[in-house]
Structure formats: structure tokens, C-alpha cells
Design a protein around this nucleic acid. Structure first.
Lengths: 251, 251
DNA sequence: ACGCGCAATCCTGTATACAGACGGAACTCA
DNA sequence: TGAGTTCCGTCTGTATACAGGATTGCGCGT
């Protein structure tokens, strides 16, 4: 076994899982393609046992599909599947926000969320938003959503949200980098940030229905982004996972 | 597939998974208890490899929790966790019902659902409902919910619903057998059936919001049932999975 | 008597060997 | 020439062997 320390700290199973997931999401495997264990062994450099574990986990994650006769294949997604996954995430995040609002959040609990909001404000106020700013936005946006979900105080809800966000393109930040090449980019980020502001306000005032509704609408920004990205398919290299789509999407 | 054939035809992994799940849900393992692989090997009679696969699947299912230092333990659930899981299922089933309503369901698609509804009607019209009728209700109710979810036409939604329903007590029929010993049993079944009727009506008329709202409320019947079951804890043998609750719930 | 350390034992994670099954290709017969 | 059958190769599912590490219990020292 190699002595590279950084790779040594995590288990072989996790390493294989990460490698295979990257490979799938970066579009290096065609959807529907059978993924043989020996092939995965060659790719990841670990033995069959952890590879098999990783494959099982990726199946549960939703990226692979079990073949009845045995083994796994890369799952194919229709455009409908992706839109539904986004709606699912929005619905679940809406539930989490409603939980947070109904159960009440103390000022101390809201503080990190407000800090995060302010940090994002600094980014979106730039007029031509730099590529680095987009990249920073991805990080802060993920942090904002994570904090918000935690505010629900519901481990089962967080679990289901993470699960939903693991689907291709269903994550809150899935399209941000693709946006960076679109003229509408700035507006979309401004609107998204307005949603962030509203959900905090709603939670603060214990307006459960409002918090839920705005998070649903917030997720639907991703639908708009997906449509935009499909229309300007020149930016396909920014969304390599588009290769997982079954049919060529209509314009 | 029949159960007896499956014991021979189904893989060792699935067999181990079923055996362990039964063991956990029947309360034969205390929550928090470490579940050793060798122990699981003795229980299931299969080798360590399929046992490990089964443990990983059960972790993804939410019944087990990975221990940082390695291995798995039986997950502990708070009463809040269970209530949240029920709300999650209701929210997701509501989404599925809304999808069905918004996207439209043909008369042919609705037919099996209406048949199922009629079959349940025959059961709940009996005045003292027999224990066999309760048992039949469980089957038909599961069928009704499965048909309803399929009507959404959304594989991702069905996936998430199944996941949510796998949590202890979150399944649509989790409390039915416990109800059979309660005086309120008949009323609850009548109300549940009324919900079933309404959701079909809403879908037929493409009333998405109504379909969603009624399914959310429908799930909340389970909350009421849980509270009732906890109050009359004499029927604890009908709900063996109560052993998975962390603290003794307050009356 | 109590705390710390060491050692032994068990356990997990990983690798590999083996058997059964599925699929594909080639050959034979009509 | 086409279809069916048989054989071979490959792959999955399962079992087991091995090594590193964690935990527990005991003994020793303070």
C-alpha cells in the first residue's frame, strides 16, 4: 500500500466512494453503462470488498441502479427527474424552515445565519461579479443552507434534505458556477439573496407558512437556472453531469 | 414472491438485512447497543461479507448509526424524531398527491385506486371491526398509499417517500394494529378513509393544494395514534419498536 | 485504595480465493 | 441461411484469512 499520508487517513471504502462519485458526476461514465467491480477496482486502486461497499452506498445515494441480474449501472435521469428532485429539495427545505419558525429560534441561534447573510451581501453587491466571487458564493450559499436546515432542530429532516440534495443538480449550489457565464447571473443572485433575507425574517417572526413558501420558491430558482443552462448549452463544460440526462433536452 | 421461496432464492445479503431489521424493529436490541458483525453472523447464519452489506444498507435506511471508531450501533430515536418523521412522510406524500393532481390522472389510472377505496369501505363499515379486518386494512391501506404515490409519476418522489416510511412508526400503517385495541379505533379508521376519499376527489379535479393539504393532515392521524398508544401503554406488545425510544415518554 | 499503564483479546477493515450464474459467441442441424 | 443449443469466459456473490487498531481488564505503582 502507498504511503501517501493524506490518502491514508480515510478508509479505502470512502476513498473509492469519492473517486467513483466524482467520476459519475463529472460525466466520465455514460448513463446506463454497466459499472463492473473489476473496472472500479482498476479505477480506484482498492480491492473488491471496499469497492463493493462504495457501490452499495452510491446506489443508496441514488447515483447507481442495481441490475436485477447482479451488479450496478449508472443511473439515467430524465429532465423530469431532475425537476422533481429540485421540487423535492424545496419542499423539504420548506418543511425545515417551517419547523424553525414554528419552534422558534433564539437571537443567538440566528446570529451565524445573519452573519452569513451579510457575507453574501458583500459579494452580490459587486457589479460585475468576479469568478472568484461566484466561487465564494457557492461556499457561503452552502453554509447558509446548512445553517438554516440545522435551525429546524430536526435530524430526520436534515437527513432527508441531504439525501435529496445528493441527486444531480438538486443541490442548492448546483447551477451557480454555470450562472457565472450567463447575463442574468447577477439578477438571479440578487433574487436568491432576497429569498434568504425573507426566510430569516419569517423565522424571526415565527411565520411558518411564509418561511415554508419562500423556501419552495427559492428552490425553483434552480429550475429556472436549469432551463437557462440548457438553452445556452455552450456552457456544458460547466455542468459535466448533464451527460447523465437520458435524452437530449429540448431547447 | 412468496416468503418461503425467498428464503432460498433471495441473496444472503437480503436475507441478513431482513433478519436484522426484524430484530431491530421488534425491539430485541436495545437502542444504543453496539451490533457486532460476528454477533450478526450468528443471528443470521450467513458469512461476514453479506452481513456487512446488510449493516451498511440498514445504516442508509436509518435504523443503524455508524460508530466513528468502526462498526454500527442501533439508532436511538426521540419522540420528537418520530413525530418529525411522520410529518416528513406527510409532507412528501402531500407533494406526490399534488404532483398527481397538477399533472392529471386519467380515469384508467384512478380506477385501481377507487377499487382499493371501495375495498376499504367494506372493511370500515363493519361496526365492531374484527382483528382480521384490521389486518386486512393494513394490507389495503399500504396498497392505497403505494398506488397514490405511483400516481405522482415521479420516481424521485416515490424514492424519498419510501425512505421516510422506513423510519420506525413513520409508515402509513404503523399504528393500525395498535389501534385495534383502542376504543377510538373505529372513528380513526373512518376519518382516515374520508381522507382517502378526499384526496382522490382532489386529484380528479386537479386541485393540487387540496390534495397536498389533505395528505399532510392524513399523516397527522399517525401523530394522534402515537399519542394514544403512548397513553395506553398496556398495548406495548403491539408496538415492540417502542423500545427504540430513548427516554420513557411522558404521559 | 485509586489511578495509570500495559497487555491481551476482540473487532473491524481489507484482500483474496472459490463457486455459481449470466451472457455471448460459435457451431450444428434443419 | 437461420435458429437453436452448447460451451466458454467473465462477473458477481460469498466465504475466509490476515493485519491493524480499539477497548477492556488486570496488575503495578503511588
Amino acid at each position: 500500500m502507498s504511503d501517501r499520508d493524506s490518502e491514508r487517513s480515510v478508509s479505502q471504502t470512502v476513498r473509492a466512494q469519492l473517486a467513483l462519485r466524482d467520476m459519475i458526476l463529472s460525466g466520465q461514465m455514460r448513463s446506463g453503462e454497466r459499472i463492473s467491480e473489476l473496472q472500479a477496482v482498476e479505477i480506484t486502486g482498492v480491492s473488491r470488498t471496499p469497492v463493493r461497499l462504495a457501490l452499495v452506498r452510491l446506489e443508496d445515494e441514488g447515483l447507481l441502479q442495481a441490475i436485477p441480474s447482479g451488479g450496478f449501472m449508472v443511473k439515467a435521469f430524465s429532465e423530469r427527474d431532475i425537476l422533481d428532485s429540485i421540487e423535492l429539495r424545496g419542499t423539504l427545505e420548506g418543511l425545515a424552515a417551517r419547523f424553525a419558525a414554528e419552534r422558534g429560534a433564539s437571537a443567538r441561534q440566528l446570529e451565524p445565519l445573519k452573519e452569513c447573510l451579510a457575507d453574501i451581501d458583500l459579494l452580490v453587491r459587486q457589479d460585475p461579479i468576479s469568478v472568484e466571487a461566484f466561487s465564494a458564493y457557492v461556499t457561503l450559499n452552502a453554509r447558509f443552507h446548512a445553517l438554516l436546515n440545522e435551525l429546524s432542530g430536526s435530524a430526520p429532516a436534515i437527513r432527508q434534505i441531504d439525501r435529496a440534495a445528493a441527486m444531480p443538480f438538486a443541490s442548492p449550489s448546483a447551477f451557480v458556477m454555470a450562472q457565472s457565464a450567463l447575463p442574468e447571473a447577477h439578477n438571479i443572485l440578487l433574487i436568491a439573496q432576497e429569498h434568504h433575507r425573507i426566510v430569516i425574517d419569517a423565522i424571526e417572526n415565527r411565520e411558518g407558512a411564509r418561511a415554508e413558501a419562500i423556501m419552495r420558491e427559492h428552490a425553483r430558482l434552480a429550475v429556472r437556472n436549469l432551463r437557462l443552462a440548457l438553452r445556452h448549452r455552450v456552457h456544458l463544460d460547466l455542468l459535466p453531469a448533464l451527460a447523465l440526462l437520458t435524452s437530449a433536452p429540448a431547447d
